[in-house]
Simulated assay, not measured.
Amino acid sequence: MITRQERALRNAVILLAVAALVLGGLLFWSLRAMAILKGGTVEGDSPDIATAGGQPVTERQWMDELRKKHGDEVLLGMLNHIVVGMEAKALGISVTDDEVDQQLQLNMSGYESEEQYYAQMQSELGLSREEVREETVYRLTLQRVATAGIMISEADIDNYLAQNAERFIPKKQLQLSIIEAENYEEAEQIMDRLEQGEDFAALARELSTDEESGKHGGKIGMLEEDDPFWPEELLNTAAGLNPGDIAGPLATEDGYAVIRLEQVITPAAPATVDIRKQVREELALEKAAPLQQVEKELREKYHTAIYIDNSLQD
């Protein structure tokens, strides 16, 4: 299940992950290759891993095909991990578990639950929980390396906060379920059936014109009270409900809807020190070279050599 907000967040995460590694379904190959780089061995010469009509597919054939199609990106990603790690060690840069946890919580914003976030990462990128965490550590480390030596003054932070104060005001998060209909009359009929005691989730599965939310009983996850992907009237109505209340018909982009408020969460305001730290890091990143350029420069600094195709160095 994914809402319109989640689709946008998912796309951002995908682009970020592609810039970092382009792993996806290639993790098995890359982990084996990393083992070889570290002096590890792979048991067996080339066992059969599949058959079709009695014709075998060997592990070597599979690995060769992966290398031809995606090996460039995986190899560069592996080398980037190595050189960024070297530079971080040289600069005394490290990332704490708490910082990783905070970044993951930020990444999960807009998802109904932690489980849904990790399920999405698994289905879209082929990344397990552990691998998502590893990539988060890498990304934070790369950002720290890229911004090393860049100074941001307290006045710079003060100016940014003065111009963007509303950004750090906690916003209500509304957990909603929805039944979408093609027109006002159909939405009215849904309201009538709900008022007669019929189950919301069952009606969503039966009647909702939005197939994605309908198959999940109408659940669309958490929305911020000013989410730009949803009509203002719908969000304002939802914000005025108590958990369990139903409202509708409400105009949507594709017709009309009936909503039920499941839960309201008002996040605690972040500590001032945390806000200033976040702003400092963001302003430093704005002044830093693009991260892909930093990776390229580090590969050059640490004399990376690629023997299969020198064009990868470009």
Results as ranks from 00 to 15, higher is better:
Gly126Thr: 09
Gly53Gln: 09
Tyr111Thr: 01
Ile49Asn: 04
Val137Gly: 00
Val83Trp: 09
Ile93Glu: 00
Leu125Glu: 04
Glu99Ala: 06
Val264Gly: 01
Asn159Ile: 06
Pro290Phe: 05
Arg60His: 11
Met191His: 08
Ala238Lys: 05
Ile36Trp: 07
Val294Tyr: 03
Gly40Ile: 14
Gln105Arg: 14
Leu76Gly: 10
His70Thr: 10
Ala269Arg: 13
Ala305Val: 14
Met121Ile: 02
Glu135Ser: 03
Leu223Glu: 02
Glu300Thr: 06
Ala52Thr: 09
Glu211Pro: 02
Val258Asp: 01
Ile308Gln: 03
Lys68Phe: 10
Glu188Val: 15
Met34Ile: 06
Lys277His: 03
Glu99His: 00
Val84Phe: 02
Ala247Phe: 04
Leu21Ile: 05
Ala202Val: 14
Ile2Gly: 00
Ala155Ser: 09
Gln313Thr: 02
Glu114Trp: 04
Ile308Glu: 04
Met78Tyr: 08
Arg7Gly: 00
Ile49His: 04
Asp192His: 10
Val279Cys: 03
Gly126Glu: 08
Ile82Met: 12
Glu130Met: 07
Met108Pro: 00
Gln102Ala: 13
Gly39Gln: 14
Leu16Asp: 12
Trp62Thr: 11
Leu16Ser: 08
Met222Leu: 15
Ala271Lys: 15
Lys301Trp: 05
Ser123Val: 06
Ile265Gln: 11
Gly149Pro: 10
Asn107Ala: 04
Thr147Asn: 06
Pro267Leu: 08
Gly149Gln: 08
Ala201Ser: 15
Gln5Ala: 04
Leu291Tyr: 02
Ala162Ile: 02
Ser153Asn: 13
Gly126Gln: 07
Leu79Gly: 00
Lys89Cys: 00
His70Ala: 13
Met86Pro: 00
Gln55Val: 15
Gln189Ala: 11
Glu6Phe: 01
Gln292Trp: 04
Arg129Met: 07
Leu261Asp: 03
Met34Gln: 07
Ala17Phe: 05
Pro267Ser: 06
Glu232Phe: 10
Pro249Phe: 09
Ser46Trp: 12
Gln173Met: 14
Val264Asp: 01
Leu16Trp: 08
Ala165Lys: 15
Thr96Pro: 03
Lys68Asp: 13
Gly92Ser: 05
Val145Ile: 12
Ala52Asn: 06
Ile82Asp: 09
Glu224Asp: 11
Trp230Asn: 08
Leu312Arg: 05
Ala284Thr: 02
His303Pro: 00
Leu241Glu: 10
Ala146Glu: 07
Ala35Cys: 09
Arg144Tyr: 06
Gln143Ile: 10
Glu212Val: 15
Pro249Met: 10
Trp230Thr: 05
Leu298Gln: 04
Thr3Gln: 04
Asp98Glu: 15
Met63Ile: 13
Val13Met: 12
Glu65Leu: 14
Met222Cys: 01
Glu130Ser: 09
Gly54Val: 14
Ser177Met: 13
Asp97Pro: 00
Lys89Ala: 13
Leu207Met: 12
Asp64Arg: 12
Arg4Thr: 03
Arg167Trp: 07
Ala201Val: 02
Arg144Thr: 03
Asn183Asp: 15
Glu232Thr: 15
Glu135Trp: 07
Gly85Asn: 08
Trp29Asn: 07
Thr252Ser: 12
Gln263Asn: 12
Ser46Tyr: 12
Ser177Asn: 07
Leu194Cys: 06
Glu43Ser: 12
Val137His: 14
Leu106Tyr: 08
Glu232Gln: 15
Asp226Ser: 11
Glu188His: 11
Ala238Asp: 08
Gln189Thr: 03
Gly54Asp: 12
Val100Ala: 11
Glu114Met: 09
Ala271Asp: 13
Glu286Met: 04
Glu198Phe: 11
His70Glu: 10
Glu59Thr: 04
